[in-house]
């Protein structure tokens, strides 16, 4: 091993040690725990696949899988679209753009619990500012469109929409990455597009998005990986998994309740394994789609810079 390589290994070592000790070993232990009855008090008992069999009949898990997938389906694309839109809107130096960028980043900096409690107030069905705003211009407790305002905490559909809504404001990280990627795009590509008389929509479709595509692909995968966990604090703090029985019960909440409220750590580990499996499947599907698009020159390496 030469000097440079040794230095590289040494520099990597703290991260690798952390990865093994804090992530891989606990993950392996969790997977092993999924085959046991463990309560952290008495000695664990090997159960074979019993926990996984129980997963298939548990109504909470069944509801949570559906809820988690619907959250993933709505939250991930919406978050990305908003983050990309804001990054493209705010990448130019203009009056107030710094303040606007800070405003986009700010919700992500609020501690999760405080963020959840704030939404508990915002979504209050009668006194909450969101519904108060929606009732502006309406009469008799109805909105200006004549409809009833959403019942965020008591109607299953509205509650699920509320959880997605909460996720749409914590896009700071994605926004920063897209903003940085946009600022790094070569100005010549835009100059060329302008010379050729491309309109704004064409520049977006033919220049900006293809050049940003590799970054966006990574962000989609990352957000998918995070989304099954991201719904945890909002549901714990704001809806507690309800309206009953399981309208906003997500897998992360089932895992928490089984482990920390009912002391069923073995079963909770099986739920964790299920989450891991679902995430892997979702990522795999996206990965295959992205590769197919790349091979057709829609995204990634296949996409050509204009003028090349």
């Amino acid at each position: 091993m030469n000097r440079d390589r040794r230095q590289l290994v040494l520099m990597l070592m703290p991260y690798l040690v952390g990865l093994v000790v804090l992530v891989l070993l606990p993950a392996a232990a969790t997977m092993a725990m999924a085959f046991t009855e463990t309560d952290l008090i008495a000695t664990s008992r090997f159960l074979g696949a019993a926990n996984f069999v129980e997963l298939t009949t548990d109504p909470a898990v069944q509801a949570a899988v559906g809820n988690s997938l619907s959250y993933l389906m709505f939250s991930v694309p919406l978050r990305l679209v908003i983050a990309v839109g804001l990054a493209l809107l705010l990448h130019r130096r203009a009056r107030g753009s710094g303040t606007a960028r800070a405003a986009v980043l700010l919700p992500g900096a609020v501690p999760e619990l405080a963020y959840g409690l704030m939404w508990l107030w915002l979504l209050n069905p009668i006194q909450g500012p969101v519904n108060q705003f929606l009732l502006l211009g309406g009469e008799g407790g109805r909105t200006a469109l004549g409809t009833l305002p959403p019942q965020w905490l008591t109607d299953p559909e509205d509650a699920r929409a509320g959880i997605v809504l909460m996720s749409l404001f914590t896009i700071g990280e994605t926004f920063v990455i897209v903003l940085t990627a946009r600022l790094a795009l070569p100005p010549e590509a835009y100059e060329l597009a302008e010379l050729e008389g491309a309109r704004a929509g064409q520049v977006l479709r033919r220049v900006t998005l293809p050049l940003l595509a590799p970054v966006l692909a990574v962000l989609v995968l990352r957000d998918t990986l995070m989304s099954l966990q991201a719904s945890f604090v909002p549901t714990l703090v704001v809806t507690n998994g309800g309206p009953p029985p399981y309208a906003t019960t997500y897998l992360s909440l089932v895992l928490y309740q089984d482990a920390f409220e009912y002391l069923r750590y073995g079963y909770a580990a099986a739920v964790a394994a299920l989450m891991l499996g679902l995430t892997a499947v979702a990522v795999l599907i996206q990965w295959r789609l992205l590769r197919r698009w790349a091979s057709h020159g829609i995204v990634g390496a296949g996409a050509q810079r204009p003028g090349n």
């Binding site: 309560d39 952290l40 008090i41 920390f260 409220e261 002391l263």
Partner: peptide, 13 residues
Amino acid sequence: AKDLMTRVSTSIA
């Protein structure tokens, strides 16, 4: 009360 139960089990472990 639920937080207390979590703390008892994890502290025993």
